[in-house]
Design a protein around this nucleic acid. Structure first.
Length: 306
DNA sequence: ACAGTAATAT
DNA sequence: TATATTACTG
């Protein structure tokens, strides 16, 4: 019936921002709530567009211009005791940043960072710096690291018990020995460097098969999942921010660093132990999220390549 | 101020 | 379920 149904894609595509205009979803530069406060409510020129998932989403039927409620990110409750409306003050306080989705790509980068640092120096802050994924917080990394370490411990136990493991851990092999099935799928998606399993020798840096910085032309984006409504409407949404935050620190998405490290890729960053930390170059693009649950997934698309 | 851990919350 | 948050210790 509606022609719109047939050319919604064209329209949508037309309005896509160019890569240069793309601004990372996350707001690592500003204190989280501050950041959210600003750009989230910037209905000025950019409203998020609802994007019916290309191939999936059996949902069907008319999802007219419904768009998601304004809630999305700010989902929580503002509330407001009276104030709120003012705009400007500090609604930020209660805003939550969306949950990070650890895609295999993102996890790989995490593993690479840990491998590069060596177990000894692989602490959340440093890992975060090395990864240089915008919007990634220390707590994101800390939480992930905690789980990952548990995973490694299980792996160690198995390897000492079950037999030879030496950098050869296929998911199947792990499943065979009975590695616990929780998030191991994610963790098994990237090979565990051998020295992770050997407590004996710590080390400093290792050679890694990274490509030259020249090869990193890709955006990296984070995938986040909204935790607001728990409808089982599987929806993918496209969101970007049209203007720079008050701090005006945003540059190209892939160039973005944290505020404290105002320099370009490849320039060393001072670590806390005095060692310099140079962000890892990007080899493969970080992929957009796979919406597994019935959750909404906000995602930024990497390129207009295709 | 940060790191680590376990427990708990969403 | 996966991730976030909290409470606590070092």
């Amino acid at each position: 019936m509606r022609e719109e149904d047939s050319n919604w894609f064209a329209k949508w595509e037309d309005e896509l921002p160019s890569p240069d205009e793309l601004i990372p979803l996350s707001q690592s530069l500003i204190s989280t709530d501050l950041a959210l406060a600003f750009d989230i409510r910037n209905p000025h020129q950019i409203a998020a567009a609802t994007v019916p998932p290309p191939s999936q989403l059996p949902q069907s039927t008319a999802n007219s211009s419904a768009e998601f409620d304004s809630a999305d990110l700010g989902g929580g409750g503002e509330g407001g005791s009276g104030g709120g409306s003012g705009a400007g003050d500090e609604p930020a306080r209660t805003l939550k940043r969306p949950r990070l989705v650890w895609t295999p790509q993102l996890h790989k980068r995490f593993v690479d960072a840990v491998a590069h640092l060596g177990i000894k120096n692989a602490v959340p802050k440093t890992i975060m710096q090395l990864m240089s994924v915008d919007g990634l917080t220390r707590e994101n990394v800390a939480s992930h690291l905690q789980k990952y370490r548990l995973y490694l411990k299980r792996m160690q136990g198995i390897s000492s018990n079950g037999g030879g493991v030496g950098g050869n851990n296929s998911p199947a092999a792990l499943a065979a020995v009975g590695v616990d099935p929780a998030m191991d799928h994610l963790f098994a998606s990237s090979p565990v460097p051998a020295h992770f399993l050997h407590p004996s020798r710590a080390n400093s840096d290792h050679f890694l098969p990274f490509l030259p910085v020249a090869a990193m032309q890709n955006h990296h984006q984070m995938a986040v999942a909204g935790q607001g409504a728990h409808h089982h409407q599987l929806q993918q949404q496209f969101r970007h921010f049209g203007t720079s935050p008050p701090n005006g620190q945003f540059e190209h998405p892939f160039m973005r660093q944290s505020q404290q490290q105002v320099q370009r890729m490849g320039t060393p960053v001072l670590g806390r132990n005095g060692s310099s930390v140079v962000p890892l170059p990007y080899v493969e693009d970080l992929e957009s999220a796979t919406a597994t649950n019935g959750r909404k997934v906000l995602t930024l698309f990497p390129t207009g390549d295709d």
